Computed example of a mutant assay.
Amino acid sequence: MSNLLTISEAAELLGVSTKTIRRWEAQGRLNSIRTAGGHRRFTVSDLIGNKQDNSLTVAYARVSSHDQKDDLDRQKIVLEAYCAQQGWSFEVISDLGSGLNYRKKGLIKLIKLICSDQVERLVLTHKDRLLRFGSDLIFTLCEIFGTEVVMINRSEDSTFEEVLAQDVIEIITVFSARLYGSRSHKNKQIVKQLKEVADQLK
Rank of each mutant, 00 (worst) to 15 (best):
I111A: 06
I93L: 15
F90Q: 03
N101H: 13
G99T: 02
D95P: 13
Q118A: 15
L110F: 09
E91R: 12
S98E: 07
G87L: 03
S98K: 06
I93E: 02
Q118W: 02
R103F: 00
F90A: 02
Q118M: 13
L100V: 06
Q86H: 08
L107A: 01
E120M: 03
K104Y: 12
G87E: 03
G87M: 04
E91D: 07
D95F: 11
W88K: 11
W88N: 11
S116H: 01
S98P: 03
G99V: 03
I111R: 11
S89R: 12
E91Q: 14
G97N: 03
G97Q: 03
C115P: 04
L96K: 11
G87A: 05
D117I: 00
D95A: 10
I111L: 12
R103W: 00
F90N: 04
Q118T: 14
D117V: 00
S98I: 01
G97D: 01
Q85N: 13
D95R: 12
Y102E: 11
K112L: 12
L113N: 04
G99N: 06
D117N: 13
L110E: 07
Y102K: 13
S89Y: 00
C115S: 14
K105F: 11
Q86F: 03
L110W: 08
Q118Y: 12
K109Q: 15
Q86G: 04
G87P: 05
S98Q: 05
Q86L: 08
S89A: 10
K104H: 14
Y102S: 11
K109T: 14
K112I: 02
Y102W: 08
K112V: 00
V119Y: 07
I111Q: 08
Q86N: 09
A84H: 08
S98A: 04
F90C: 01
R103Q: 09
C115F: 08
R103E: 10
Y102N: 10
E91V: 09
G106F: 10
L96E: 13
Q85E: 13
G106S: 11
L110Q: 08
K109G: 06
I111G: 00
R103K: 09
G87F: 06
L100K: 10
G99H: 07
Q85W: 05
L96F: 03
E91S: 07
I114E: 09
V119R: 09
S89W: 00
G99D: 06
G99F: 06
L113Q: 10
N101L: 11
K105S: 14
V92Y: 07
R103T: 04
R103A: 02
K104A: 14
Y102H: 11
V119G: 06
K105R: 15
S89Q: 11
D95K: 13
G99M: 05
I93R: 10
Q118K: 15
G106E: 08
S94V: 09
K105L: 12
Q85F: 07
I114L: 12
V92H: 07
Q85Y: 06
G106M: 10
K104Q: 15
L96Y: 04
R103Y: 02
L100W: 10
A84Y: 00
E91C: 01
V92W: 05
D95M: 12
G99P: 05
Q118H: 14
K105H: 15
E120W: 00
